[in-house]
Write a protein that binds this DNA or RNA. Structure first.
Length: 311
DNA sequence: TGCAGTGTTGCTTC
DNA sequence: CGAAGCAACACTGC
């Protein structure tokens, strides 16, 4: 479920563990004929070039751009990783047994949570540890770019600003969403070319806190509502990072451990449960919403929202 | 058992 | 051009 907070959590982990290390080798079992993946490591001939180019390079910095992870190397190349639906980057000591990579418990890399790990690519690092790319559904993308022009490539050039950027303010949000006046707000919040980093979970949460129905047309939103979305976009995404990401499904940090944002969902996957919104009036009097969380497919994604307070 | 549902994105179709 | 549908893949849960 990697959205901005999960990708940021992984990026911070990498920054802590792999800066300064060299890449001594790369292994993969990916091999697809899918033309859309011809410029990624899933393509055999691309992987050959990739392996040659990253051989013996040193990791000098790690950054995040929207939901992309950029690992900058000392040869002016950048490894770009997009986790898509089920991708993880895991750091630790692994062993290769029976054609499969497994965490080496003797070396302090415990078997991760009760889910099967599908390691499809492994970087062998100069400290004898590994950076493993684990991706059940194999949607993930790993490619190599020139550092200097990385942001001008098709992978990154069409991304809108990220709500956690300091200068992302009310006028930025207004200007960005106004590009899709007829769009449903949930869909527009998730459109990476409009605003980058928000996906299905966080859009549901942001709209619940903002008391806005996910199907509201952008052009119908007033200034107060847009301010509210701005406030909660920053607040909820930051909270997601503070809790180490959302592991309701299979996201894990680089140590294979769960984040905890799923314990703080108010809307996402709470279908049929009672809405927890309550309004506080003067003299501390509180009024509960008493609504129920509904689930509805909105432009192909399942949206969760309160039938009462989200208007 | 079988099928609907799953965090993302990008290509195809209308 | 823009919006919607669907495909990429493999597993989980009802």
């Amino acid at each position: 479920m990697p959205e901005l907070p999960e990708v940021e959590t992984t990026t911070r982990g990498l920054r802590k563990e792999v800066l300064g290390l060299r890449i001594l080798d790369v292994w993969t079992d990916l091999d697809t004929k899918d033309k859309r993946k011809s410029d990624t490591v899933a393509n055999k001939s691309f992987f050959k070039k990739f392996k040659k180019e990253v051989f013996n390079t040193k990791v000098i910095s790690v950054e995040r751009k929207a939901k992309n992870i950029l690992i900058n190397l000392n040869n002016n190349k950048t490894i770009l990783v997009h986790l898509k639906m089920t991708g993880h980057l895991l750091y630790g000591k692994y062993k290769f047994i029976k054609n499969k990579w497994t965490p080496d418990e003797k070396e302090g890399s415990p078997l991760y949570d009760p889910y099967n790990i599908f390691i499809h690519l492994v970087f062998i690092l100069s400290n004898k540890k590994h950076l493993a790319f684990c991706d059940t559904r194999k949607f993930g993308k790993i490619t190599l770019l020139d550092t200097k022009t990385a942001h001008d490539t098709k992978h990154l050039s069409n991304l809108g600003p990220d709500p956690l950027e300091k200068d992302f303010d009310l006028s930025t949000l207004k200007e960005r969403i106004s590009k899709k006046p007829n769009g449903k707000i949930k869909t527009v919040l998730m459109d990476q070319s409009i605003i980058a980093g928000i996906g299905n979970i966080y859009s549901d949460e942001i709209l619940w806190h903002s008391s806005i129905h996910p199907e509201r047309k952008v052009s119908s939103l007033n200034k107060i509502e847009i301010s509210s979305m701005l406030k909660y976009s920053k607040e909820i995404l930051s909270k997601g990072i503070d809790f180490g990401g959302d592991s309701m499904s299979d996201y894990r940090n680089i140590y294979g451990l769960r984040g905890e944002f799923q314990m703080h969902h108010q809307a996402y996957r709470r279908t049929g449960e009672k809405c927890r919104m309550s309004r506080v009036f003067s003299r501390g009097r509180k009024k509960d919403c008493n609504g129920v969380i509904l689930r509805k497919i909105i432009n192909g994604r399942s949206g969760h929202f309160c039938n009462k307070h989200q208007k």
